[in-house]
């Protein structure tokens, strides 16, 4: 464990807690894409299949449980909570996210480190995570007015993967056989998808104006 990875995990945890806080306290999910949340629940479900088979550390198991429970409860809140669901704007959240699932799965069948069920599901979860933010970014472009919590949520989500890239660089130079091209490339693609959001987020923060994405 290195500082970049710990910071990355904490930033990722913070993004989920910010989202849960928003939904739980103001009982609203306005501006949040249910599709992205469903994709994230699928990412964790397919990535943490080894939750009970491979014990790595208490930290690892605890964090996996937190991510699983939080991602599925966010989906539940938006879909079934009697008050929250009313603020879900399904007419705007129209990204065909199922079209992301199949290509990621097919790609995982072809490009993976080992052709086993667990490894293919793990690779699938990596590819899916790289594109899972797309419905949310599309929704932000559409709704234009981005409330602070949603902006912070997307920012933290992007920041966590950027910190992971620093972690991969650190591990590459400190651990002799640490080479995972699939992880690195999909993580890089994921971070690049946030690039323009980061730009506008930083601009709005610098000029102290409300965050607006160009149409």
């Amino acid at each position: 464990m290195n500082i970049f990875r710990l910071a990355g995990d904490m930033t990722h945890l913070a993004s989920v807690l910010v989202l849960l806080l928003k939904i739980h306290t103001i009982k609203s999910c306005a501006g949040i894409s249910l599709k992205t949340q469903e994709l994230y629940a699928l990412v964790f479900a397919t990535r943490y299949l080894d939750l009970f088979t491979d014990y790595i550390s208490l930290y690892n198991t605890l964090m996996k449980l937190i991510f699983l429970v939080s991602s599925f409860s966010i989906v539940w809140y938006i879909r079934h909570h009697k008050i929250v669901r009313r603020s879900y704007d399904k007419d705007q959240d129209t990204f065909r996210h199922y079209f992301l699932v199949l290509p990621c799965f097919l790609l995982a069948l072809v490009i993976n480190e080992k052709f086993t069920v667990k490894e293919i599901m793990w690779t699938f979860s990596l590819y899916l995570e790289a594109v899972a933010i797309l419905p949310q970014l599309v929704l932000l472009q559409r709704t234009r007015n981005i409330d602070n919590l949603t902006g912070q949520y997307v920012f933290l989500l992007g920041a966590y993967r950027s910190l992971y890239i620093l972690n991969w660089i650190y591990r590459y130079f400190t651990e002799p056989h640490y080479v995972h091209w699939i992880t690195w490339i999909s993580g890089l693609v994921q971070t690049l998808l946030y690039a323009d959001f980061f730009y506008y987020y930083f601009q709005s923060w610098k000029n102290n104006v409300k965050l607006e994405l160009p149409a």
């Binding site: 990875r5 080894d50 491979d54 790595i56 690892n60 964090m63 080992k114 667990k118 972690n167």
Partner: peptide, 10 residues
């Protein structure tokens, strides 16, 4: 499972 199989990152 040998070491290389297990993914230790979240």
């Amino acid at each position: 499972t040998d070491e290389s199989d297990v993914h230790d990152e979240l």
